[in-house]
Amino acid sequence: MRDYWRANQQRLAPVLFLLPGLLMFLVYVVVPIFQSVSISFYAWDGLGEKEYVGIANYVELMDDEAFYTSLKNNVIWLVLYMLAIPAGLFVALFLNQNVRGIRIYKSLFFFPFVISQVVVGLVFSWFYDPSYGLFNKILEFFGADPIAILADEDWVTYGIIIAGLWPQTAYCMILYLTGLNAVDSEQIEAARLDNAKGLKLLWYIILPQLRPATFIAMVVTIIGALRSFDLVSIMTNGGPWGSSRVLAFYMYEQAFSEYGFRMGYGAAIAVVLFAIMMIYIASFLYKMYRDERGH
């Protein structure tokens, strides 16, 4: 036994080291993905017998207004959430100095990312309150009529996204701050000698060097946008009349609310969301694969 181990340990050790983590990951992450796909072909209330319905859930989805609202909102989220990247870069450039106390400033600017989205959601719902929220006080100050952001179907999604952009910008900022630390100062000086400055310098010299940071910022921002559940749940519960739903929230609503427990239908929504996310996961993996080969 001992000798066998001695002789083969280089082959056995990785199995040993991988097993516990891989097992947990398979049971809790990989297998459930396939289970969900399978459930999406059934009508199931989570209790009784599953009834096979083929693609009926997907057919129903195609004719479900709430699904399209959620999908549309997801797209708005994806597009607007991207603003966190330039915003984060802007703040990072602003803070990338060596004055006294700048470290404290940097950490305080990062603050919103550390606190929970539940707290962010509560803070912003209060900020938007039509009768006494600061937002409407400001509007009032400029002589505008108050807007009940979270009760207005045209504004609500934007209102929630702004709340989400706050921590997300902080996240991107920190990625860029670290990236800026690593830019090659000789190149900058050389470019400066060539009389490049400002935006030109940023565009042609700095940004190419920040590419890894930008890539990660994009990945986390896209994932964040597609996972946008917490803020919707806290701030509006999907309302008014379902106009701020996103796929993640709609799925939860269908599968778990008092009115639902439509596990199959919920699973179908989740599969659609997963398919969208898969595009990004695949391109991320592809890039990683290229990097690995490049070694």
Binding site: A248, M251, A270, L273, F274, F284, L285
Partner: peptide
């Protein structure tokens, strides 16, 4: 295997929700 871990890390929670709760 490495990519499996990486990809799993990015999946939407909702696709895990029902089976994980059942389990």
């Amino acid at each position: 295997l490495f990519f499996l871990f990486v990809a799993g890390n990015f999946v939407p929670f909702q696709i895990l929700m029902v089976p994980v709760r059942d389990f």
